[in-house]
Design a binder for these strands. Structure first.
Lengths: 352, 352
DNA sequence: GGGAAAAGTTTGATCGATCAAATTCTGAGT
DNA sequence: ACTCAGAATTTGATCGATCAAACTTTTCCC
């Protein structure tokens, strides 16, 4: 295999200097038309491609975004991060950026990995997922002036947001609220909610969406709410409890597809194949079994993250201060995906 | 933020030359003990970390493995690639390698992306997944002498294997065979199989495992096999068909968890909550609903891929010829994960 | 046509590390 | 003490690109 061609080779063939070749690639507008054509021809002829590491060394930019691949994907919803990752990679590529993976078992290990990648000048910016209250990673990144953006809000600091924290999130509250209203509009009288124990930002937010939707219509939420850890079995148990209670619900909204699948099983088990159930995340499983679900606009989240990091059209990470005028976050609306969530069995169309 | 320290800075503090610092990092054994200690102290003091791009430029190695993130994860089984990716990233890290993602819509686009990353010296080796008959990507990589390994066999060339194609795969046939024997040992008389239309390497392989297990016991496989495209709905329909046929099966093995979930639903719908069903891939969904499933040793696959690419202990990609003595592939055995696949509802333990 | 500004192109230095070769240091053997 | 091999360390060159500044050519206007 012959040595890969360099700028020097291209320059020789095109009969210009190194720098002109470089200019054709990086600031084509300052090169005379005729020259540019000649250089491009030479590039094509030789199959030249700039050496990424050389460029990075000189420019002190890696054009790389680091993201942690979570250790154990939380079951059914694992596909959310997956889809997000795909969207991020694809859109980053269009902006000339790459996505580098790393793993870490906990927040401390993640910080250590981030430090390694940053110190090695391997990565220009980081994308964090699953933010929590008092997120140690966020604090560290801000303190150390490392560019980053999160998929997830800085829960708990709504009243005093830090403009150095760039984030994109999906408005779960609005999504659940919409789903609840949709069920009420469809004739439901008692819409129950199966959520998670309070304490998680996203969980509390979604719960609030349901509560508010009921209040809006002057309905009491009283005993229609059950909080359990996220699992199919728990979802099933919760639904069984609700369905056997005095005020039997005629529709259920869940904080996740996992819970919704459990609820679906419970309902079908007692013959309530028609009980409307809506999950959250629009996972492949929901699609496969025909569950309605609230879908997060993951492409939009990826686009938002990149916009915050790179600017509307830029292709390199901006330093803080370059954009003090612009908003530092983005809250996107989810979308309700309706399926015939009446029967568990589906026609051919719903298959994966 | 102060400028990051360089070898030069470390050298000055430790009172040695650049090269000695470099040696401490790359061939510590040739540096005198006392000097090494002094240099390491200086490194610690300054928090020095080698500049990845500079090193790559000089060594002409990127220490990076490229892998394509598949476009639409095929429903429920998407988690397989995901888990593999996690294992690969983690183990690569231990070997000083990084994992870079890219996306592509089809094989041609994937080749183009590979070419870009290779030409830019961004990636030393590639890992391909989901190999098919006559895989164009594999042919291109071999022809262009790009280091790579695949998760998946070179289907169709068993009789004339190309030693330049490094691969790791899981023995689906053995897995399905084991599952089938297990059911027969448990007292089943008629074990059915729901698989995919013939034509896919993995699918045909798994099907064969079932057939052979029956033949081994002198049983006829006759009408106990249904082939459908992979979807929950199809799995359900296939199971319904089998269960209403003359020779009603008393256990079912499926080519995927997706099909198995469908089969489970069909069985439960007609009251056969106890019908044993075994899926394939051991996805979070199988875990969540308590389905038995054949689990692929993904950590092992990741380890195998790295071993083939880097050698047993190496930490950089080997060129062909360096290892003509060693085997060029690895076939790993899957493991049957048993769950109480009798009822769809499960106790707390199975919840995810 | 003269001269200055603008446009286009080239040259030399540099990013931070490692390689290859040269140099200095050490210790064993006589 | 003296030599010399081998160990330990240093020096100069280099990887392939871009930056900054210098240089050359073109354009424009009076």
């Amino acid at each position: 295999m012959a040595q890969l061609p360099t700028v020097e080779d291209v320059a020789r063939v095109a009969n210009v200097s190194r720098q002109t070749v470089s200019n054709v690639l990086n600031s084509p507008e300052i090169v005379k038309e005729a020259t540019r054509t000649r250089v491009l021809a030479a590039i094509g002829e030789l199959g030249y491609r700039p050496h990424a590491s050389a460029r990075r060394l000189r420019t002190q930019k890696s054009s790389t975004i680091g993201i942690r691949l979570e250790p154990v994907r939380n079951g059914i919803s694992g596909s959310v991060l997956d889809t997000f990752l795909h969207a991020l990679t694809e859109q980053a590529d269009r902006r000339g950026m790459r996505v580098l993976l790393f793993t870490a078992d906990d927040a401390a290990a993640e910080i250590e990995q981030i430090r390694r990648l940053r110190d090695g000048a391997d990565v220009d910016a980081f994308v964090l997922t699953s933010t929590s209250y008092q997120d140690a990673r966020v604090e560290w990144l801000i303190e150390n002036n490392v560019p980053f953006a999160t998929f997830g809000r800085p829960w708990g600091t709504e009243d005093n947001p830090d403009p150095r924290h760039l984030w994109v999130d999906v408005d779960g509250r609005a999504g659940v609220s919409e789903a609840t209203r949709h069920l009420l509009d469809g004739g439901a009288q008692a819409v129950a909610y199966i959520g998670w124990p309070s304490g998680s930002g996203a969980g509390d937010d979604r719960h609030r969406g349901w509560r508010e939707a009921l209040e809006e219509r002057g309905l009491a939420s009283g005993d229609l709410h059950v909080a359990v850890e996220d699992s199919v079995a728990n979802g099933r148990a919760a639904a069984e409890q609700l369905l056997s209670s005095a005020r039997r619900p005629d529709a259920i909204v869940c904080a996740s597809d996992t819970l919704a699948l459990g609820a679906r099983l419970a309902a079908s088990a007692v013959g309530l194949d028609d009980l409307p159930i809506i999950g959250f995340d629009n996972t492949p499983v929901a699609e496969a079994v025909g569950l309605s679900s609230i879908s997060q606009p993951l492409e939009g989240v990826a686009a938002g993250v990149l916009e915050l990091l790179l600017g509307p059209t830029g292709n390199s990470v901006r330093t803080r201060g370059e954009f003090s005028e612009e908003p530092t976050n983005r809250l996107l609306a989810p979308r309700l995906v309706e399926r015939r969530s009446t029967h568990l069995a589906l026609d051919e169309n719903t298959g994966l």
